[in-house]
Design a protein around this nucleic acid. Structure first.
Length: 294
DNA sequence: AAGAACTCCTGTTGGC
DNA sequence: TGCCAACAGGAGTTCT
């Protein structure tokens, strides 16, 4: 799925199409994505005006004028594409030429008062949408347990040391756990660990001293996480296979990967002679340099 | 109760 | 070319 930088890029792409505009028409092509879509979904959205778009972890939060929030998670393959209403007829007949996806996976279409036609396509349907009152957001089952935002001041070495203290799980598993740091996924954890020179397979407890205090490597890791996410957002995210920005353009950060997807290639650390390895960890690929990640 | 394994679904890729 | 297995950016649920 889109990780935090991709979700943030999608949010930014949707903003001009949605903000200040009303849902004129909502077409729902199936009952469920990963979970059933909200009851009376199209009725409840139609006529509502979008006040603002926010993001929490990998969720896009679309705040409506009736106090409800449309919460969207893109799963692995969810994507939005934005077109103008003038092209709607063409679109309805031939989406695939518009966004490169298969039209059979166009599950929702939102027609906005400002003229935008927004299509949600999701081949694997791991994505989901909720429509809940804003006041219930914090206690919602999906939001409740989320950890800190990695780009906020809440992610710092002291926090990470505290959460890692005594944990036997490996470093990479800790970082992809949304309850600890919310928004990281496989790619950016690989990248951050490489940049910080840390071994993904070592126990998470190494981020804390015996007294639960942060160490130099904890500081390094926090810095690497923030830098890699910031850089990726500025590049418009990474495009591997499914992810696209809302305007259909590819992101550019995949060109800045230093470790992800580079199995067999030489390590990019200036003085390192290592070769990038790929190992399965928790059922997904971890890319790392066994020489400089210790 | 932490941690591992399994699960949802479809598409793409690489090996033979 | 065809077929099949492995893999894909997530994460909730179930198990041990």
């Amino acid at each position: 799925m889109p990780e935090l930088p991709e979700v943030e890029t999608v949010r930014l792409g949707l903003e001009p199409a949605l903000c200040g505009h009303r849902f004129v028409q909502v077409v729902q092509r199936r009952e469920d994505l990963r979970f059933p879509l909200p009851d009376r979904f199209t009725e409840r959205l139609t006529g509502r005006r979008v006040e603002r778009l926010a993001r929490r972890a990998k969720y896009i939060l679309i705040h409506l004028d009736d106090g409800q929030v449309l919460v969207v998670h893109l799963g692995m393959t969810g994507r939005f594409s934005v077109a103008r209403r003038a092209t709607q007829e063409v679109q309805l007949g031939n989406y695939s030429s518009e966004h490169g996806g298969n039209a059979r996976h166009d599950h929702l279409v939102f027609v906005m008062s400002g003229g935008a036609v927004i299509t949600y396509n999701d081949a694997r349907r791991f994505g989901y949408m909720l429509l809940i009152p804003e006041r219930d957001l914090a206690e919602n089952a999906f939001m409740r347990g989320l950890g800190v935002e990695p780009l906020s001041a809440e992610l710092n070495a002291a926090y990470l040391a505290r959460r890692a203290f005594g944990k036997k799980i490996d470093l990479k598993t800790l970082l992809t756990d949304q309850r600890i740091v919310a928004g990281l996924g496989n790619i950016y954890v690989c990248e951050a660990l490489f940049r910080a020179g840390l071994d993904p397979f070592k126990p998470a407890s190494r981020l804390a001293t015996s007294g639960g205090r942060p160490t130099a490597r904890t500081e390094r890791l926090v810095g690497a996480i923030k830098r890699v996410l910031g850089h990726a957002i500025r590049a418009g995210g990474s495009t591997l296979r499914d992810y696209k920005q809302a305007d259909g353009r590819a992101g550019a950060f995949q060109n800045a990967f230093q470790i992800y997807g580079r199995e067999g290639a030489p390590c990019l650390k200036p003085s390192c002679r290592g070769t990038v390895l790929r190992k399965s960890q928790g059922g997904r690929s971890t890319f790392y340099c066994p020489v400089c990640q210790r």
